[in-house]
């Protein structure tokens, strides 16, 4: 057993879907388990932090860390696993680019706490409590992790070797990544282990694009009867496929849902949201300002649309003052 490569899984600020993706390997997971030793997987197996601490440095072959880094505890665990691992893979959109939790970067700790613990409508008004990092109880002092001002991507905290993108990553990409690592067939450090081109290239609807892809309107998916045979973008739905790395095999599009960008941008693009805005504005075919206003009314949440998974990676991060709450 000692010869088998050691693997760890950990989650930070995330929804748990990435863990689900591991389980989604289904019977494939048996092959993984046969090939590796899982030394840490809090969601599924009973290990303690001290088990990891006791391991020699760099003794874990690879740690898959999902979730963004929002709490002091997550940062500590990330650093610990970094020290103990040869390779660290940022697993899933939150770890890769901040993900949905990263949208909280429109606010900071004070404004988030003020809203959630004080100002938001409550069934028990006046019952105001805020989490505190240290609470004295008769038995001693209890400790809660610190809540940082800013949600960070994993690579804004520790050195990351590879990225497995997706919300969540597909089981196929995970199996491929494990295979690559086990074979020692290593891609250049920093690679994103998915497609190299944008999604359109593997999208079954790409062929159906009109000769001139220009939009006269923007439509919202829940108000649109989608033609499953026709490019969703050409139907006026804001599909982020053109600005999103492929590799998912267009799962959402096959389900008549436009791509929301969870695989992040291609290698050549640094800011997915900015690029998304640039490309959509380029193909909007309006002359009148009123038409632009009307179309934009169908994008009620531009940040949540274009930066759904990547706000902590935005060029303009934190150059704007904290947003007011609703």
């Amino acid at each position: 057993m000692a010869d088998k490569p050691k693997v760890a899984f950990y989650w930070c600020a995330s929804c748990g879907g990435c863990e689900e993706a591991v389980v989604d390997l289904a019977e494939g997971i048996l092959d993984v388990i046969a090939a590796v030793d899982i030394v840490f997987w809090p969601v599924a197996l009973d290990f303690k932090v001290r088990d990891v601490k006791e391991l020699p440095d760099e003794s874990i072959t690879v740690s898959f860390i999902n979730g963004a880094v929002r709490l002091s505890e997550q940062e500590e665990m990330a650093r610990l696993l970094r020290r103990k691992s040869k390779f660290v893979i940022a697993f899933g959109s939150c770890s890769h680019m901040g993900g949905v939790p990263g949208l909280a970067n429109l606010w900071d700790r004070a404004s988030i706490f003020a809203w959630y613990y004080h100002d938001a409508p409550s069934v028990a008004p006046g019952n105001v409590r805020e989490p505190r990092e240290h609470v004295r109880v008769p038995e001693g002092t209890l400790e809660l992790p610190a809540f940082w001002d800013t949600v960070k991507t994993l690579d804004q905290v520790i050195d990351v070797d590879y990225y497995l993108p997706g919300c969540p990553p597909t089981p196929k990409l995970l199996a491929d990544a494990v295979g690559v690592l086990l074979r020692g067939d290593l891609p250049p450090k920093g690679s994103v282990l998915a497609g190299t081109r944008a999604l359109c290239h593997e999208c079954p609807l790409n062929e159906s694009k009109p000769e001139k892809l220009l939009l006269k309107d923007i439509r919202r998916v829940h108000l649109t009867k989608v033609d499953p045979e026709k490019c969703l973008l050409a139907q006026g739905l804001l599909c982020l496929g053109p600005v999103t790395r492929g590799g998912c095999e267009a799962l959402c599009v096959k389900g008549n849902m436009p791509c929301t960008g969870c695989f992040g941008p291609t290698d050549e693009v640094r800011d997915q949201g900015a690029k998304g805005i640039a490309y959509v504005s380029s193909i909007l075919d309006f002359d009148e300002e009123a038409d632009i206003e009307r179309a934009l009314a169908n994008v009620p949440d531009p940040v949540g649309t274009f930066y759904r998974y990547s706000l902590p990676r935005a060029y303009l991060m934190r150059t704007r003052k904290v947003m007011p709450h609703a």
């Binding site: 359109c200 790409n206 892809l213 053109p242 050549e268």
Partner: peptide, 13 residues
């Protein structure tokens, strides 16, 4: 070429 996804955004522009 190896980066182009054929999304055709550029063509009408």
């Amino acid at each position: 070429e190896q980066l182009c996804s054929g999304c055709q955004v550029c063509i009408p522009l």
